[in-house]
């Protein structure tokens, strides 16, 4: 096994270390039906505000009629073993937990967004200033926590518990008897952007060519329209490419 880079991390990786836990997730794309229940459960669990998402499902249509297929790719924070976001945070507001989680300290975060620049997976977002619950954190970085509060109480993460097709499997990958370890061992799995050396711990079964540029080139007209609606709802966001999208829509 190649050596993992530990510098800048609060805890070294527990992946493969005997006597330690390393939580990971397996996403079986062959089972996913695209019901978006995982996104909903996450929204409900954390009262995630409009416009930002901890968990979402990317929907792709491929092929030409009649040989077409629709693919769904649930996306989360990958809780990397070599997380660039943790390394980039200037105040250690985001940190590496000994059980493998990448977590966020809301009261320490200054909202500089360096972690979001560093994250290759767009898994982070800035919480808006207006929250429905005034006690919820505002204007700080937020991300998926693998539902650490549930897992520590012996429950599955909200998205896993809600998945209707049993496509999301969560567990301790260090435990050879866990379902996660068995799946990763038995099936050909892949991770997103593994060439970056981040060592993601969300494994996909049935993942093919998840090139980030493809998203840019192949956006549907509906998605562009939704994007413009999103922009109108967030006038203060740093977008400067509004005109292009408007023009593209007319094509």
């Amino acid at each position: 096994m190649t050596k993992v880079r530990h510098y800048g991390l609060q805890n070294p990786t527990s992946f493969g270390v005997k006597g330690k836990r390393r939580y990971a997730m397996v996403v079986d794309l062959t089972r996913c039906t695209g019901c978006m229940e995982c996104s909903l459960a996450c929204k409900a669990e954390f009262d995630t505000p409009l416009g930002v998402m901890r968990t979402w499902v990317k929907v792709i249509e491929r092929g030409q009629f009649p040989n077409v297929q629709r693919r769904f790719i649930p996306r989360f924070c990958n809780h990397c073993d070599n997380p660039p976001c943790v390394r980039a945070c200037p105040v250690q507001a985001t940190f590496k937990h000994e059980d493998g989680y990448v977590l966020q300290r809301y009261n320490r975060c200054i909202g500089c967004r360096t972690c979001m620049i560093a994250c290759p997976y767009n898994a982070r977002h800035l919480l808006p200033a207006d929250r429905s619950n005034p006690h919820d954190p505002t204007r700080v970085a937020d991300k998926c926590t693998f539902c650490v509060h549930r897992v520590e109480r012996g429950l599955a993460p909200a998205c896993v518990a809600a998945c209707t097709a049993n496509a999301l499997i969560f567990g301790d990958i260090n435990d050879p008897d866990s379902e996660v370890a068995k799946l990763v061992g038995l099936f050909p799995t892949d991770t997103i952007k593994k060439d970056l050396g981040t060592r993601p711990q969300v494994y996909y079964i049935g993942l093919e060519d998840m090139d980030n540029v493809e998203s840019y080139h192949h956006r549907s007209a509906q998605m562009k329209k939704e994007f413009n609606t999103f922009k109108r709802n967030y006038p203060n966001s740093h977008f400067m490419h509004g005109d292009m999208l408007e023009e593209e829509q007319e094509d």
Partner: peptide
Amino acid sequence: MEQEIVWNAFHNVYW
């Protein structure tokens, strides 16, 4: 192969 991203979450230019 022809393909289209039907839906995805939107993200900002953070800086």
